[in-house]
Each structure stands twice: as structure tokens, then as C-alpha cells.
Simulated scan of single mutants.
Amino acid sequence: MNFKVINRNVIVLVFAMILGNFLGILQASAAPPPHREIVPPKIPPVITLFEQTPLYSTTDDSHKPFAALTPQDVTTVDAEQAWYYKQHGEKVWIKIKTTWAGDLWMHLDYDKIGIVKPIDTNIALLWDSSLYTQPSTSTMTDIVLAPQTVHANAVFESPVSYLSNSYRIETSWLGDMWIVSQPRMLLDMEILNQEMDLPTETLYMEDYDTSSRLQRPSDAKFIPPQKVFALEKTQNGIYHVRSQDGNTFWVQPDFAQPVGVEPIDERLNLLKDVRLYMFPTMPFPTFGVLSAQTVNAFERWTDPQNELWYHIHTWAGDMWVQPDKPL
């Protein structure tokens, strides 16, 4: 009898321990995630003033200004609480440092918070771009530039997200003007203005990023070997060129049939699946996978790494494959 009682007590104890662990796990899983403190952005340490700006001793612009500053860079000390929640059209109280009157307040438009920094670069404007007198959306003029390449001598760095891509450019008839919030542009263009030889059939790109948007081989357009006039080049080695008939377009020298191709007529036994490439030197995009089979190769090319490529006829058109390269 005592033995049965002991066994029963042991079973009850074990069950209680299991139940306690289970409840503990449930409580732990139901517990809220640890609180992660959000660090608010800081007011820029230096702000560029674009116009005469009143200064106040307190955050009340109903009183007469204590003084006014001409356009210049000023050092900030503080800002009103939650200034970063302001929106377009609202103003922010910002305390700045002066050498002659101590710390004073200014009531600045939210979209004028930032600093002008000098740069020296060429920018290709890919869309029509409105001109602004300042890097602020409220200063837009009626003047619109057609797509072209311009020289920029300054950038406006601002914590206001919609003011990104704001650059001061040089114009021949208006002087310096601003391009504001223009997402369709290419920075750091290299001006070339020289002849360029396209020795083999090359992918014709209406836009600089046409190659990355190809969905199928039939979407591609090609130009025959020819000499073109290279106007400029992007950081990624894509050239903006003009043909002899005056047509302008984009090319990437690697997106072309390779030089030194050897004509062959060879049955090629593919022992495994291979990717289909438009050109051996164009890694993206690829155009499907060809399963293991025997195909007819009509051209062969050895790349700089001494690896063999074969040009074959496929359901997707003429494609390049590399039989020894795994997927």
C-alpha cells in the first residue's frame, strides 16, 4: 500500500513539474518584446540660410525680431521638441549660436533645414526637370529643362527626405539654379566627346538601364558594327552615344558579341543543365535553362579566364552556353 502511495505521489510531482514548465513557456512566448528605444534625428550642426532671417530671443515670432542675419552658414545649438515631425509648409524653431549676441532663435521653414556643400560633378537629367531658385519645393520656377547633362557645383544635404537629390547647377542664361527632388538622374557622369568603335553586334539600349529590364530575348534590339560618337559615360561603364545618323542611345561594350569568335559546326553534348546567355560578357539577365541534351554549336569563344563558350540555336533564339559551368 505504501509503495502504491509513493508511486502515485511521484507521478503527481512529475506531472506538476511538466505543467509548470509548460506554463512558463507559454508566459515567456506571450511576453511582449523588449522595448527598443527610438533615437530621434538630431538637428544638423550647421544650417545654410538662403535669405535674410529674423532672430528672436524667445520662441515667439509675434514679438519684434532682436536682429536679422544675411544669407550664411550658422551653427545650431538646439531645436524645438519633436521638430522632425513637422511637415511641408510648417516652420521649426531652431536655436543658433552668434558671436555677438549669444544664442538666439530663428523660425525656419521645415524644407529649408540643411547645408549647402560644394561639389564638382556632371549630372545626366533623364526626365524633364523644373528649376528652383533655392533647394526648397516652394521656390519652383516656370522654367523646365529637357533631358540633358549639366554641371553641378553644390549639393543640399538635408534631413528632410523629400529634398534628397537636390543639386545646384550652372546655366548659361540664368546663372546658378537648383534641381530639387529629382529621382531620375545619373551622378558623376564622365564627359567624353570622342569617337568610339563598336566592333561587333551590340545591344541597343534606349535608356541606360534597358538591359536590366529585358524580359525575353525577343525584346532586345541590336546594332551592327559601326563607329559612334561617345558623349559621356556612367560610373558603371555605360556609354551615351550618337550614331552617324544623329540618333542617340546607350551601349555597354560588354553587352555585345565577343571579339575573336571562332566559327564551328560541332555537335555539343550537354551533360547537365546550363544557363542561356545573350552574350558571354553579359551575366544578367539570363534567359532560362537548357536541360541536358545534344545541340549544334555554330560558334566558339574562349574568354580571358580561358573558359570555353558555345553559341547555339535554341527555342529562345541564338544563345551562349558554358557547358562546364555549374548552375
Rank of each mutant, 00 (worst) to 15 (best):
V10T: 06
L13H: 03
N21V: 06
P33I: 10
H35T: 12
H35P: 07
R36G: 10
V39D: 08
P40N: 07
K42R: 13
F50V: 00
F66H: 15
A67P: 08
L69D: 13
T70K: 14
P71C: 08
A79S: 06
A79V: 00
K86F: 03
K86D: 06
D109S: 03
G114N: 07
I115Y: 01
I119Y: 05
W127M: 07
S129Y: 03
P135F: 01
S138Q: 15
Q148L: 02
N153R: 02
E157K: 11
P159N: 12
L163A: 09
Y167V: 07
I169D: 09
T171A: 11
V180C: 08
Q182G: 05
R184L: 05
N193V: 08
T200L: 10
S212T: 04
S212P: 00
F222Y: 11
K227Q: 15
V228Q: 10
K233W: 14
H240Q: 04
W250M: 04
P253C: 13
F255C: 04
Q257T: 12
P258H: 08
E262I: 10
I264N: 05
E266M: 08
R275G: 11
L276N: 10
M278H: 05
T286W: 13
T286V: 15
F287C: 15
N296M: 09
Y310K: 08
V321W: 01
P326W: 07
P326V: 05
